[in-house]
């Protein structure tokens, strides 16, 4: 065999091996591209599915149904007292929030008196975000029960009863509907089949979510948030600590020279039978 021939054979074999290696490499590349493509498709599909599914599942910011007598452009606010009172007290509260319980137990009788004297019109935003941080459903189920009580015209009394019987924050007693229904027996006229089914069916669950979403978008970050004519007064109004006496003093100062609202309504707006969408429904006939 000549040297030349041997050279030629080796190159042919080398070329064949090279070709095979090249084929294998390109097949590996193709596989990699396919796998990478599949991964990206899975990820993109998950993202699109997430947006569509969660959008479908999320409750609307404007509630489909609101308790009777609620006010505001989306009917998210529960008012107590007479609508023509000169001062507006705005309160953001979560049924499970311990600081709200402390606030209510100290101030609820004062606020009730201010309402009955026609001095303040209280606007309650019943939020429900403690459930997000502490296991349980007591904020949402409690807020729904308060909405049911509003629907029945007994919000103020039931609200006061709830906060007087508030469990520890980590105890989800308000997540138990039987507990709420039992507490409702302390409010005259609230223990009805309509109220019971409203609580058990979570009738205003969508409304509760709307109220919370409204709070999420607000600039307020904790509860209780208490405003007098829009000015924060909890825990302090300027440099003055909030106390029942100071609250009365501040309200009187704000109301100076103004005509007081209808008195003696007990803040208990009679429940209109229709789904009242008209805001600022004064309640001179209550009592």
């Amino acid at each position: 065999m000549s040297e030349k021939n041997r050279e030629g054979k080796r190159t042919a074999r080398e070329r064949m091996l090279e070709q095979r290696a090249a084929d294998e490499a390109s097949s590996r590349r193709r596989k990699k591209l396919l796998v990478g493509g599949a991964v990206l498709v899975v990820i993109a599909a998950a993202v699109v599915t997430g947006v569509v599914v969660q959008n479908e599942r999320s409750k609307p910011e404007t509630p489909v149904a609101a308790p009777a007598g609620t006010i505001g452009d989306k009917n998210l606010v529960i008012p107590t007292g007479s609508a023509n009172a000169p001062a507006v007290l705005t309160v953001y509260e979560d049924p499970r929030c311990p600081a709200c319980g402390i606030f209510e137990r100290e101030f609820s009788s004062t606020i009730d008196q201010l309402e009955d004297a026609g001095k303040v019109y209280t606007n309650y935003h019943i939020v429900s975000f403690i459930d997000r941080a502490v296991p349980g459903k007591g904020s949402k189920i409690g807020a729904n029960a308060l909405a049911c009580a509003q629907d029945a015209g007994h919000f103020r009394d039931f609200h006061d009863v709830l906060y007087r019987n508030q469990p520890e924050e980590t105890n989800d007693a308000f997540g138990n509907k039987a507990v709420l229904l039992n507490l409702a027996k302390q409010v005259n006229g609230l223990d009805t089949p309509a109220f019971e089914s409203c609580v058990n069916d979570g009738k205003y669950g969508g409304w509760v979510s709307s109220v919370q979403q409204d709070f999420d978008k607000s600039s307020y970050k904790s509860t209780p948030t208490v405003l007098l004519n829009g000015q924060p007064i909890y825990p302090k109004n300027g440099s003055e600590e909030i106390t029942p006496a100071n609250l009365v003093k501040w309200v009187d100062a704000a109301n100076q020279g103004k005509q007081l609202g209808t008195t003696g309504s007990n803040g208990q707006a009679p429940a209109p039978t229709s789904t009242a969408s008209e805001a600022n429904n004064p309640s001179p006939t209550a009592g």
């Binding site: 998950a46 599914v53 969660q54």
Partner: peptide, 12 residues
């Protein structure tokens, strides 16, 4: 959109 998509991305 981010809040809705993120859990699904994580599950994927």
């Amino acid at each position: 959109p981010i809040g809705y998509a993120l859990p699904f991305l994580e599950l994927a």
